[in-house]
Design a protein around this nucleic acid. Structure first.
Ligand SMILES: [Mn+2]
Ligand SMILES: [Mn+2]
Ligand SMILES: [Mn+2]
Ligand SMILES: [Mn+2]
Lengths: 219, 219
DNA sequence: TTTTTAGTTTAAGGTTGCTTAAAATCGCTT
DNA sequence: AAGCGATTTTAAGCAACCTTAAACTAAAAA
């Protein structure tokens, strides 16, 4: 299992989770920042190894063995993120980049030591569920997109999806953090933006694109 | 800086430290478990980059820039070893293999978080000094090979050099650990083996080859 | 149904880091 | 000084992973 294979399988899984739609070669190529031709190459190879269901011109789907690999990498990524954040007190903005490298170079044994040290946690610092050893994913029931909350209703931020360094910076600027309470003041159907009130009364308008990455639990 | 380059430079440094003699291509090839031809290739490449002083048929020596890289990797290796051992309570026998991978995928920032967490330590769990950021190496004055201790003299084990999984296992079997007190009972010039007494009175004969890796401080 | 076009595959080529085998060199021994 | 054996370099080639550019498909538009 090379770093390239790890990342390929992991991102087929994540892309499918995030978009809920079939994963195409060009979609994945964009995500991995490699050429579409390189994706085709790798896809054929992983198909031959029984990790991926690859058929020319069709969407990419994981076979059970490939999903297992993907979930293990996701587990390692999220455990590392939590460890770096909670134990080593690293900046929330940098844990993702570090975990992105460490996830490929961590034995199962080391990972379990970290898991034990953390007390078998269920969620990473962004609020994403940490898959278990058997592949079970902690339930996120009640967690919905911010846009699902009605006007004048309050909610607790449960998850801030990591997309890139820039989004992290925006979360920081706005003071968006897992666990804080938001009240939805108004929704603007025109551009999908959402006005929210922070604890203390500060009111802010969030763009649709940013709000797409904010999940919370109704209160 | 690739993993191959890291390992090349690190092992030129370590091999020179350990043997005190010039590092030849075949010597390094054996250590890295690659062919001598591969060493020549890489040496020429690193020579062109100003990291290594490479002249055909001559011994390999690090240039200042190369030594800096080497020391940084050694620092990361040893900090990781200590962290895995002291914080995560991993088996002393496995920390080396884990550190061998992590050392190449750890940012300076992450490393400093770990360094701070550990309280700026000077020695790794094997007793090896941890090079500082500026390249300064904590002094080991008073630390000598076990064979330098005279008969009937006592000493404290300061360093058990890691060579491979097998030596680690032998340390374990004999109960050899950093910090324990040994009394040298007898030296056998015939084969260089050394009889020592452990706390509690247990007496054991250590082969010359094993004793070569045991360092201690006279008491 | 034919054409267009977006998306995918194939083809050819580059880089890194390794291999084995042949050729060259060094330095010691006769 | 010549020869020999050990070491090192050179040469040729391979696998993994990537690239760009050309050829091909499939599915939507005309
Ligand atoms: Mn992440
Ligand atoms: Mn995360
Ligand atoms: Mn080590
Ligand atoms: Mn060590």
């Amino acid at each position: 299992m090379s770093v390239s294979v790890d990342n390929f399988l992991k991102n087929v899984y994540l892309l499918n989770q995030e978009t809920g739609s079939p994963v195409t070669s060009s979609h994945l190529a964009g995500r991995l920042e490699i050429s579409v031709a390189a994706v085709t190459d790798m896809a054929r190879k992983l198909g031959a190894q029984g990790l991926l269901d690859y058929r020319p011109y069709k969407a990419l789907t994981l076979m059970p063995a490939g999903k297992e690999v993907a979930l293990k990498i996701v587990r390692k990524h999220r455990l590392w993120e939590l460890f770096l954040y909670e134990v080593l007190k690293m900046d929330l903005m940098s844990v993702h980049e570090e975990a992105e490298k460490l996830e490929h170079h961590t034995s199962d044994d080391l990972m379990e030591h970290i898991n034990r040290f953390l007390g078998h946690p269920d969620f990473d610092p962004h609020g994403d569920p940490i898959p278990g050893i058997g592949g079970r994913i902690p339930s996120e029931k009640g967690v919905v997109l911010l846009r699902e909350i009605g006007e004048e209703e309050a909610c607790i931020v449960a998850k801030l999806r990591y997309r890139n360094a820039e989004t992290s910076e925006m979360y920081d600027r706005f003071g968006l953090k897992k666990g804080i309470r938001l009240k939805v003041v108004r929704m603007f159907p025109f551009d999908g933006s959402i006005e929210v009130e922070f604890p203390g009364g500060r009111e802010v308008v969030l763009s649709e694109k940013l709000a797409q990455n904010i999940f919370c639990i109704k209160q």
